[in-house]
Simulated assay, not measured.
Amino acid sequence: MTNPQPPDSPHTPPAFNGTPSGDPSATYPAAYAGGPSAYAPAPPAPPGRTLAIVGLVLAFLVSPVGLILSIVAAVKLGKAGAPKGLAIAGIIVGAVITIIWVIVIILMITVFAGLFAMCTELGAGVWEVDGVTYTCGGS
């Protein structure tokens, strides 16, 4: 039987390098024979690794939730003996942003409480006290 393609054609199949019997272990080392021990399986991810990533992302978006998830991930990773870098980063970011939000909320409450107290004292109308104009609505 003849091959219709010329021998130097790019479509020529590669030459057979195996043995006539077709046994690949005769040509290749045992590691490449395709047996069950050819490759070691990938080690499983430590418990809490995905939780640490989710905690870090949520620390930027919803900081209290990210902080809690990062703490849980750090505990799980610590018990597994795995590195806790992402979990610690999530704890730091979540704590800092949570503290900033708490400070902002306290300041807003203080400012509005002062405004409500001033309007309660002055009554309805437009008032100017020490160069500050207050517009208080009445009922």
Rank of each mutant, 00 (worst) to 15 (best):
S70D: 12
A95T: 15
A80T: 03
S37T: 15
T50K: 08
A80V: 09
A38N: 06
V102G: 10
P41Y: 00
K76A: 14
T98R: 05
V72M: 07
A38L: 08
V72R: 05
S70R: 02
P36N: 13
V54Y: 07
A87M: 10
G90P: 01
P83R: 10
A42L: 15
V62T: 14
P41F: 00
G94K: 06
P46D: 06
P36W: 11
I106E: 15
L77W: 04
V75R: 02
L56A: 10
P41M: 00
G48V: 13
P44V: 06
P41E: 06
A87Q: 03
V54N: 04
W101S: 14
R49D: 07
L86P: 01
V96R: 03
S63E: 03
G48K: 00
I92M: 11
A74N: 12
L69Y: 08
A52S: 06
V72Q: 01
A52V: 04
G90S: 12
K84Q: 13
G85Q: 08
P47G: 09
V93S: 02
V75S: 02
I106N: 13
A89I: 05
K76L: 15
L86E: 01
L67P: 05
L77R: 02
V54Q: 06
I99E: 10
S63F: 00
L77K: 03
S37D: 15
I103A: 12
S63R: 03
G78T: 13
L61H: 03
P36V: 15
L67C: 08
A80W: 00
V54C: 04
I71W: 12
P64V: 07
I71T: 14
A40F: 13
T50Y: 08
P36G: 09
I106D: 13
P36T: 14
V104Q: 14
A40H: 14
P47C: 05
T50I: 08
I91Y: 06
I53K: 06
